[in-house]
Amino acid sequence: MMTGLILHASAIGLLLTGIYAIAARRHLMRNILGLAVLESGANLLLVAIGYRQGGHAPILVAGQTPGPMVDPIPQALVLTAIVIGFGVLALALALVVRVKENYGTLDNREVAERLRAESREARS
C-alpha cells in the first residue's frame, strides 16, 4: 500500500514538474529538460500500473519456484517509450544549437515574437 502511494505520488510529482517547466518557464533548455522529466513521470506511472502484488521479474530462470510475475507489457512499453524520448531529445538539442546560433538567445517568448515579426515581413 505504502509502496503504491510513494510510486504514484512520485510519478505525479514528476509529471507536474515537467508541465511546470514547459508551460511556465521561458528558457528553451528548461523546456526541454521539462520534457525529459515529464517523460520519466509517464514511464514511472506505466511501470507502477504493471506491478503485481508479490510478483517478480518476468524472466524464466531454471530451478526457480514458479510464483506470480509482474505484468511484462508495461515494461516493454516503457523500454520503447524511453528510446522514443531519447530520439526526440536529441533532435531538440540539435535545433536548440541552431536557434542559439541564429537568434543569440534561448528565450522562448522572445524567439516566438521575432518569428511572428519575420512571418509578417514581406517575402518575395
Binding site: 520534457l35 517523460e39 531538440a92 536548440v96 541552431r98 524567439v111
Partner: peptide
C-alpha cells in the same frame, strides 16, 4: 529552426500526455 523547436516542445508535451 525556431518554428521547429517550438513545434517539437508542444508536440512532445502532447504525446507524453497521450502516453499517460
Amino acid at each position: 529552426y525556431a518554428a521547429a523547436i517550438r513545434f517539437l516542445i508542444l508536440g512532445s508535451l502532447g504525446s507524453t500526455l497521450a502516453l499517460v
